[in-house]
Design a protein around this nucleic acid. Structure first.
Lengths: 333, 333
DNA sequence: CTGAAAGCGCTAACAG
DNA sequence: CTGTTAGCGCTTTCAG
């Protein structure tokens, strides 16, 4: 067994209490006593035991980051900032993968199989509003992304609607009139619904009307983007002069299809994505895209969770929408 | 405070011991007693307390995954499999980011600031061989990637040398004679050294000799790949007929530079990368690359760590090299 | 099959 | 400033 506080106390000739005081640099300890204790600790290689501390404190200092999968770039992007923010507030982050399974997401709402974490930050993709009732009231949670639960669950969102609107405004400003929305998926995630809504609002604002033929269904993957555009072109459906893809993967797939069919981007068709994945900067042409402030997403999520855990008064509302930036690149000029 | 075992015991009219037995489906408990206990647990919403259990057991059931950064694709790819494997063995994974700082990597060797984890899987980039001495002997660690420590540290490796050799063999088989190595970095990571060594061995095997002008220095990023190739072309240095990039980012940066300068790939210059990032499949032309078996990497790392933690006899040697596959795509035909 | 009770390592209330 | 000590929730030894 590892060396305990008791061992240190004996070695330093003080009581356990004093060792504890030193470890937590608490209260008043006479400098020389402190030094003696520190020496003893170093000598014995003392390391405080997290389990005992947690048991005593009733908190573990752990928070869970719950994501569907790390291969999706946005989740990987989020992990770094979340870990850093959490660390700054004294938390350690542990990872939970849901593979987008609803059961696993629900399990998080109840605090998990064991009370291992003080709270969770979750990107939920499969929860339904009514699942909110299964939530254990005293388990702090912050949802990132869509607002999928009813009730007073805190949540920090990507500005889907506002950004989609900004994209349309940008395209209309370039004189484009026949805008395609790629990745249309009626009643899928709220993310899709919000981007759709922003798209439609943008069109209305620009005095344009949506053409049904230009709302193109596709899963949000590169392969699907490619397939959908190929089919659209081959079927000689009405040709857009701009495409707003629901995310960058779709956009990059579309780009490949357009190039394969000899359609020039951006001359004939402008192309805009969403997410600002790294590749967007490096494709040829480079891709105009919406860049949500992921850093702020992480910062807010951790801060909001910390507020709940520590019972501190919320310095911000229960719902936060972070900023975004439209990165205009070669694909829409 | 949450409901404890004691509460459940009282509600079910049994002793704490019996509840514990039920929870750990231990020993012999009469079916009806078991049921009564289960009912009481459900009724009260009992959830076992991880801290108490850890304190008692002397193990936390947590393992650390220590990586420099999640934005580098390979780390993100590793996370999923590691979490899944760990879960299958009853561990929870927690994340530690080192930003490649040597001090932080060393700290892991000593078991960290608190005994929170039972062991660690680390991708170390900055450790030096002599750091091995700082290692706390009883803290289980598995290194992934390079073998950076002397001593008996377990480690699972990517087949850098073998794969680099296979790449050269492939290019030579296509009739290419003037092979460039992009991302040459004398005495950087061992990864680079091993790939370099494989490259040279491959050349020797094919009866070719390395030209110094074709060992091109560059950081392992896309921007650097682009810059290095642009400079090389603009300086009118000797033209290669094939480029082996130390990783895919470099290769994709190089691709961009080649296209910008009107060099046709693969007709004039074949191009091969390393890592098999997702984009490699979708670039134009798609990129030939080495695909290490990341799944196996994760599986072995977790299994080896588990062996150390549980003190089980090692079913495998202390060093494992996983498989790879050379994915031949459009960029080298 | 079940109960009583010790004790894992630490914090903090209480007492000097 | 420092010592004593109870107890966080659980597992497990020892008795029944």
């Amino acid at each position: 067994m590892a060396v305990s506080m008791h061992d240190v106390a004996r070695a330093a000739g003080v009581s356990q209490r004093t060792v504890s005081n030193v470890v937590n640099d608490y209260a008043y300890v006479r400098p020389e006593t402190r030094q003696r204790v520190l020496d003893a600790m170093a000598e014995l290689g003392y390391v405080p035991n997290a389990a005992a501390r947690s048991l005593r404190a009733g908190r573990t200092g752990l928070i869970a980051l719950v994501v569907p999968d790390f291969r999706a770039r946005i989740f990987a992007d989020l992990a770094g900032p979340v870990v850093r923010e959490a660390e700054a507030l004294g938390y350690t982050v542990l990872i939970e993968l849901t593979e987008s399974e609803r059961e696993r997401e629900i399990e998080v709402l109840t605090g998990g199989r064991n009370q291992l974490t003080d709270g969770a930050i979750m990107m939920a993709l499969s929860l339904r509003p009514e699942d909110g009732e299964r939530r254990r009231a005293d388990y702090p949670i912050v949802l990132v992304g869509d607002e999928v639960l009813t009730g007073d669950v805190r949540h920090v969102a990507i500005p889907n609607r506002e950004a989609a609107k900004a994209v349309v405004r940008h395209l209309a400003g370039l004189g484009r009139r026949r805008l395609m929305l790629l990745g249309y998926a009626p009643a899928e995630h709220q993310t899709g619904r919000m981007r759709l809504r922003g798209f439609l609002e943008g069109l209305a604002e620009a005095g344009l009307t949506a053409q049904e033929e230009l709302l193109v269904e596709a899963g949000w993957t590169r392969a699907e983007g490619q397939r959908a555009i190929e089919e659209h072109l081959d079927a000689r459906r009405s040709m857009p002069d701009a495409i707003f893809a629901m995310n960058d993967s779709l956009a990059l797939g579309a780009l490949r299809a357009l190039q394969a069919r000899g359609v020039r981007v951006p001359e004939e068709v402008a192309l805009v994505g969403f997410d600002d994945v790294e590749e967007a900067r490096y494709s040829t042409p480079s891709l105009t895209t919406v860049s949500p402030d992921v850093e702020a997403l992480a910062r807010n999520a951790v801060a909001m969770l910390h507020e709940q855990i520590s019972g501190r008064p919320a310095g911000r509302g229960p719902h936060v929408v972070v900023d975004f930036e439209l990165k205009v690149r070669e694909s829409s000029r």
